[in-house]
């Protein structure tokens, strides 16, 4: 007997959640410290995950997350809810900052020599129990994303993950994947468009 996937997040809830996050940012913009604390409780885990995955160093990842929340505190008024979700904005800030730090830390040739292409993830056995509504919300989002990502071809997935997490250039990604640059660009385009279509109204 087939049952509907219980973990799926209804789009209406996603929109409500995004609006709640945007409201938190408005409160932060007006100088509400408690709002920042609440946003920290909601976002710190995924942001730390992004920074850890790029930097592979918990201390550096925490420095990045710290700086991102300072930026959020100072720039919350600049957030444009029409363009992306608050979480998407915070993830973009974290990714940019982590990649800047990563690029500063290592010269390009060192990256090529030492980074393992098939090991971009962090410890999958790390604790991830849903201990709160925030954890549950993140778990539900992660489930929806995971399902979408599995619908990409493995080539598209590899190209996108390298593009998002590695801090490499287009050419370096092509070299890493042993594929012509044009092929890699096409995979990134098709993969990202497919991901957008699969996740419409779910982010």
């Amino acid at each position: 007997m087939n049952s509907a996937p219980a973990e799926s997040t209804p789009p209406a809830d996603v929109h409500a959640q995004n609006e709640a996050d945007a409201a938190l940012l408005r409160e932060i913009a007006s100088g509400d410290r408690d709002a920042l604390a609440r946003l920290y409780d909601r976002f710190s885990r995924p942001l730390f995950g992004v920074a850890s995955r790029i930097l592979r160093d918990a201390t550096e990842a925490e420095d990045v997350v710290h700086d991102v929340f300072i930026t959020i505190w100072q720039k919350a008024a600049a957030f444009e809810p029409a363009r992306c979700s608050a979480l998407g904005w915070a993830i973009a800030l974290t990714r940019n900052r982590a990649i800047d730090r990563f690029r500063t830390r290592r010269r390009r040739h060192e990256i090529l020599e030492t980074s393992a292409p098939d090991d971009l993830g962090y410890d999958e056995t790390a604790p991830s129990a849903a201990s709160s509504s925030t954890d549950l919300w993140q778990k539900e989002k992660a489930t929806a994303v995971r399902r979408a990502v599995t619908e990409l071809s493995s080539e598209q997935r590899n190209a996108l993950e390298l593009a998002f997490f590695s801090g490499l250039t287009q050419q370096e990604i092509a070299t890493r994947l042993h594929e012509p640059l044009g092929t890699v660009k096409a995979r990134i385009r098709r993969g990202l468009l497919k991901l957008r279509d699969l996740l419409a109204d779910r982010l």
């Binding site: 920290y40 885990r45 995955r53 992306c84 998407g88 790390a126 604790p127 994303v145 990502v149």
Partner: peptide, 25 residues
């Protein structure tokens, strides 16, 4: 850009240390 941020949520992440919250605030 919004779709690309989904990649960040694909894998479950460990929490940062409790000291980070104190430091941020």
């Amino acid at each position: 850009r919004q779709a690309s941020t989904a990649l960040a949520l694909e894998k479950s992440a460990p929490p940062p240390s409790p000291a980070l919250r104190v430091r941020v605030l």
